[in-house]
Design a protein around this nucleic acid. Structure first.
Lengths: 156, 156
DNA sequence: TGAAATTCCATTGACGCCCATAGGATGGCA
DNA sequence: TGCCATCCTATGGGCGTCAATGGAATTTCA
């Protein structure tokens, strides 16, 4: 099962190509589409990414729950309408669409940030600032830590 | 299940490689990824380590909760982005990334400290100092020590 | 026919894999 | 009980491979 860990900063070349980190590629290698699905984050200046299987699962789940609700409609528009299927080239690179680059403020460098089952793509400096905040909040509020209950296995 | 016990001090060679103690390796041998997952401790100048299974579980829990939310708890954000998958080489060594070495102040030597289900990696001197403190606190406050009820586990 | 995009090839530097060595621990055997 | 053979862990270094990157060549579409 795919697991995205760690942060990798890669270059965006003149043609808008970026290498997807090798470990991310291998996490995606068993999916039905050889590439990345990406869409703008709803609340952050970042690009959300994952394999296509995750989207298929989510689409299924949404349909099952409430196929005709307005909520579903908004959701579909917000996510599925803006999602892009970005195929790997033979070197494992993708081309980030102008819209997504703009949303994340990316120009020269792109930071691939693992988030477990999915990942985000940030402008590196923006991410550093955001990360510092997140770590800060995490330190203040350990209660947000969700682990399977187990004794002798606390947080960091 | 295997436990991480005892403390081992190993050398960091010129290429940044460290041997993971054999007993730790065997504790990790049944996991789906042959290596270590490591991330900086949020509260200590140390590297936290465990097998990948622990992360798989966490990722699963988060993703199930709310697959599209940007509100995923800060803790997991802070961790997944900073975590590194460090594969064993054929001799059972790992390469500690510069960022983690810096966080723990490690240069020549690394102390692997068993913590039961997980372990930590310290700069040996820093750990000695911390350990002395910890013992002190433990003496002052015995009540904080809580063991899960389990037979065949005689105390020290 | 020109611009953009996709495919292909080349470079380089890091990392993975291999071998070699030493020292300690273990167990066998006299 | 003491010595020796063996195994395994920790360590060091060399080398081939692959990932990341850049650019050229070729194709597609307007």
């Amino acid at each position: 099962m795919a697991l995205f860990l760690s942060t990798f900063v890669n270059k965006v070349d003149r043609k808008g190509r970026v290498s997807v980190p090798a470990s991310f590629r291998s996490a995606l290698s068993q999916q039905s589409f050889s590439g990345v699905v990406a869409f703008p984050s709803l609340s952050l200046p970042a690009i959300e990414g994952s394999g296509i299987d995750r989207f298929e699962k989510i689409a299924e789940g949404i349909d099952d729950l409430n196929p005709f609700s307005d909520e579903h409609d908004d959701f579909s528009k917000a996510i599925f309408g803006k999602a892009h299927q970005l195929p790997f080239d033979s070197e494992g690179r993708i081309i980030l669409p102008e819209l997504l680059l703009a949303h994340a403020g990316i120009s020269e460098l792109a930071a691939f940030v693992g988030q477990g089952r999915r990942f985000q793509i940030w402008e590196p400096e923006a991410f550093r600032a955001y990360e510092a905040e997140a770590v800060d909040r995490a330190k203040r509020d350990r209660s947000s830590l969700k682990l399977p209950p187990r004794s002798g296995d606390g947080g960091a």
